[in-house]
Design a protein around this nucleic acid. Structure first.
Lengths: 129, 129
DNA sequence: ACATTTGTTCTATATATAGTAGAGCAAACA
DNA sequence: TGTTTGCTCTACTATATATAGAACAAATGT
């Protein structure tokens, strides 16, 4: 997995890392049961602090994408990641809403927004950009 | 315009206010040239601080949705809001990407995500939820 | 002409988040 | 047994969020 962090971004680096790991899961580069680097090794690798990687791991654990086994290591949820519940879908919708709204204010049509999403799905699955 | 703020939300209230004003623009309740309440009146109306409303206005001004005329008032961009440029589209895509990614990790299909967006567009335009 | 309203600016305070830093702990592992 | 592991603790800095009050000068309403 190639991880690239933009230190100038307004997105916190612990989230940037989480996003890239999630993309790795989507692409199948990270499969259920795969182990992730230790917080120290990963931090040293990426040139960031141990606590920042730790924050990423706990963020992903709260989403139930990974399992943190104390004093042992971190693995991708071995049983696989279950399909989104209604509650989880609603959370995603709540996050999408203001962005879609801004698109509509800027006079993008429903079709243009849909096309945007389709393109993003392809890019994420192919690891582009 | 009916504004409702959730004080328990993890979304800052100055952003919640901005989002709801943007939805008002989409719905046509706020038209080009329409004036918005003064920071003091609006703040008093919503039970929040003057500076918070001021922050919302400057946030929307930076997006070029409104015009702030010093010592006079705030109006919806009288010339209308121009169609999104390529740069603005890319910014929206960058915001959408991690959310779409999370949907994919949770095994939502491209069609389900598209359906989500279509439903959101309808809800926003109809002022639902 | 005068009083009110306007957005702006300043200081101030409190809380939360983000990021880094170093140290020590106990359990797992080789 | 010695290393590695995630966990925890304190500590510090910077930024974001939200509130609060005061004052300013220009625009506005009467």
């Amino acid at each position: 997995m190639f991880i690239e962090i933009e230190s100038n971004s307004d997105v916190p680096i612990y989230l940037q890392l989480a996003h890239q790991l999630m993309e790795g899961i989507v692409r199948g580069e990270l499969k259920p049961g795969d182990s992730l680097p230790s917080v120290r090794a990963f931090a040293s690798d990426l040139g960031m602090n141990m606590h920042t990687v730790n924050k990423t791991y706990h963020y992903l654990e709260e989403k139930e994408f990974i399992q943190i086994v104390a004093k042992s290591g971190v693995i991708i949820r071995p049983s696989g990641i279950p399909k989104a519940t209604e509650e989880e879908k609603q959370k995603l919708e709540a996050q999408l809403r203001p962005i879609i709204t801004e698109g509509l204010v800027r006079k993008l049509s429903e079709e243009e927004l849909v096309e945007m999403v389709r393109k993003l799905v392809q890019n994420i699955e192919e690891g582009k950009e």
